[in-house]
Design a binder for these strands. Structure first.
Lengths: 254, 254
DNA sequence: GCGGATGATTTGTCCGTGCATTATCGGAGG
DNA sequence: CCTCCGATAATGCACGGACAAATCATCCGC
């Protein structure tokens, strides 16, 4: 099927092409029930089993796939979506606890912001789309979120009803680039002013300030700052000498 | 050389034994100048090149090794030590900026602490060794660090001069188990009381509270809480859809 | 009808081979 | 003395095969 697009000119390894193709099909939700077996993939792509395993190994140890001897390969969709970064996993893990998530739009429109433009690598007076939201979990304030995006890729977003939908889903829907890479920075702060009220924090209560740069195809497409209620959410990293670190989010024990 | 200890009974894969052996020799600082080539490893361990690469692949993509076509394999010792967790990398990255790190011992001794004992999986009235330190970078307060360890493994540590040496180095020196796995949890707080003064924080200033459980061979050997000066240090996580997350620490831009 | 044996399926491990790609080194030649 | 070129060495990529171990479905016997 998708095997037609494999190029054997040596420019990119076969396993990398297969991995990319599988990742794309995963994003499209193709393997909802049952991942192909090694043998199926070898015949489908026309390569040796070694090459297939080389591609799958990468997906496997980023936690996306769970392979069991004798049983087969299944997709761990939760893990897959967690590779979009800790901020994504925050909102997702909150939703997975069963609470319903809503947003109150504080501001949507075209603005100029030299700090955000600088992070995005644009001119200080470039047009940006700002989306500021108060995010609630079961009606309780969870975070205050501000996202700046380049105007040329985000202008279709100005028409969207933001009360529930997620930013990335809308980006994908209008064909705008979704970040697939980036970094996030955590700083402890004591909010004041309007943001403190939006989070429902008492005076002097701590919060986490998360800054995030989202990158797609090597160019920055999203600068975001998120102020997170510090008493209710914690960031957990697991580490071991054998496997790489992973960042998880847990709701605080209340 | 170390190839003698390979067991081929199928209980543990050859590549896993080789990986463990290489990791052990790395910890001992054995490959300071030049990592063996694939061919050398195949003859040294008596296995095929495929098996050697299977072992090395794990070390490679956790960032410990940097392999270059035509050049060979070299050890990225900074990356290697960063696999010991973000807390370890905090103190290490501070030292790598050139500042000298010192400690003021607040408390050393045998105590009972039911909270720490619970985290370590011990009886609430088990004997623990507590090591509390104020950590300074160039004389400026950096963090307040409290480590609880089981008495039976940590009792030799009671005699050590803690003003400069690192906990893990001393653990290794006396033959005690060094954590190779665990998790850390980040929470924003506003310190008060003695800890606030130890950090040199003004009233109401934020800090990061880091809790850490260190595990060796599956059993907990260290429970640690660290209060980190929030204005001076930030935690950065990089993420991408292709490679797993990693946590880094940067000193704040001052 | 139920339980156990059996065989098929699937992934894990290990071996061997060949060629391509890239970096380093040394010598030939200007 | 510098430059270019080829040999060498190292890793990367891909193929092939074989066996082991674990799971699952089926069939047989009781």
């Amino acid at each position: 099927m998708s095997a037609s697009s494999l190029t054997r000119d040596g420019s990119t390894p076969l396993w990398a092409q297969i991995e990319a193709d599988l990742r794309r099909r995963l994003l499209a939700g193709e393997f909802a029930e049952g991942f192909p077996t090694d043998l199926e993939l070898t015949t489908c792509y026309g390569v040796s089993r070694h090459t297939v395993r080389e591609a799958i190994a990468r997906l496997n140890l980023s936690g996306v796939l769970r392979r069991t001897r004798g049983r087969g390969t299944v997709v761990d969709r939760a893990e897959f979506e967690q590779t979009l970064g800790t901020l994504y996993s925050l909102f997702r893990s909150v939703e997975s606890t069963g609470v319903t998530q809503t947003s109150v739009v504080l501001e949507v429109g075209v603005v100029k912001d030299d700090a955000a433009a600088g992070q995005l690598g644009l001119d200080p007076d470039a047009d940006l789309v700002l989306l500021a939201r108060q995010r609630l979990a079961d009606g309780v304030p969870l975070a205050v979120d501000r996202a700046w995006l380049p105007h040329e890729v985000a202008s279709p977003l100005l028409e969207v009803d933001w009360s529930h939908t997620a930013l990335y889903e809308e980006l994908a829907r209008v064909g705008a680039p979704v970040p697939d890479q980036g970094w996030e920075r955590l700083t402890p702060v004591v909010p004041d002013g309007p943001d403190r009220d939006l989070l429902g924090l008492e005076a002097g209560a701590p919060a986490l300030f998360l800054e995030r740069l989202g990158i797609h195809a090597g160019i920055a497409v999203e600068w975001r700052t998120t102020l997170i209620h510090g008493d209710r959410y914690r960031f957990v990293t697991e580490w071991s000498s054998t496997s790489p670190n992973g960042v998880r989010v847990t709701t605080a024990d209340l």
